[in-house]
Design a protein around this nucleic acid. Structure first.
Lengths: 137, 137
DNA sequence: ATTACTGCAAAGCATTTGCAGACTG
DNA sequence: CAGTCTGCAAATGCTTTGCAGTAAT
């Protein structure tokens, strides 16, 4: 049973750096950049090079384990575990704080696309505005 | 009357490069990258340096004239006119074709955020999947 | 033993910045 | 004329790639 929760994903060779990266994701409360992951791994006592992190992320994305997105007006890519439950965020335009959204507008929504045969696989949504602190400043 | 449609936005000094960039946006059918804009300006007989385009884009975004987004798994930023009517796109995961979405799920949706005082200003939405051609390949 | 993965260095590329001359109002 | 904007060059910073040694099955 325990294996089901923390079990290593199939089709992915187990190595120290990959274990570290995955464990960082499992403890993360928000999407992480490659650098975030790198420094978090080191904070946990491991050691990985940035380029290795990028290769691991590429692999994880390819295997559907992780989702790659970008946060508003930031050129940096961020990654998060694909928990197969939608999760969206609001980003403060002023301080770039990230606030979790608890619901998802796509649940009961069918997009009307110009290509009628477009096969929708998923979506990214991001709300932007001003957080409590910044809107009262 | 004509001025209302093609009138130059207030608070923005009029220069050739800016006029060219704006006109490119007005004739664009999809979000454009800085390079797209640059080459489009040249195609129209103008001439701008890329760094100038970036500075113009930054200004336009700041003035609320243009919106900056990123398209799936591409590290390149794209920009489009803020037409004050939502417009969203679906992106083909295989050929990266962009398909316009005619409706918007946020119209009748109130996001539940962890920060109750978050002041929502707008949103980005992107749907991904496979277009007609790629899903039958 | 074979194949794949990582550390490391160096390259790539979109974007930003500095500066002097040119242009706008 | 004063202040801003642009052309151009060079720097920055995220991400990718090449290669040789190391680790996994």
């Amino acid at each position: 049973m325990k294996e089901l929760q923390t079990g290593w994903p199939q089709n992915i060779k187990k190595t120290k750096p990959r274990e570290w990266v995955l464990s960082v994701f499992e403890n993360a409360q928000k999407p992480l950049s490659a650098m975030d992951i790198c420094s978090q791994v080191e904070k946990n006592g491991g050691s990985v090079w940035l380029s290795t992190v990028y290769r691991i992320l590429e692999l994880f994305v390819e295997k559907g384990l992780v989702i790659k997105t970008t946060v508003m007006n930031s050129d940096m890519a961020v990654y998060e575990l694909n928990r197969y439950q939608h999760k969206h965020y609001a980003v403060c335009m002023s301080c770039h704080k990230i606030v979790t959204m608890k619901n998802c507008p796509m649940e009961k929504f069918v997009p009307k696309l110009e290509d009628d045969d477009f096969h929708v696989m998923g979506h990214n949504l991001e709300v932007y505005g001003y957080c409590r602190k910044c809107s009262t400043k």
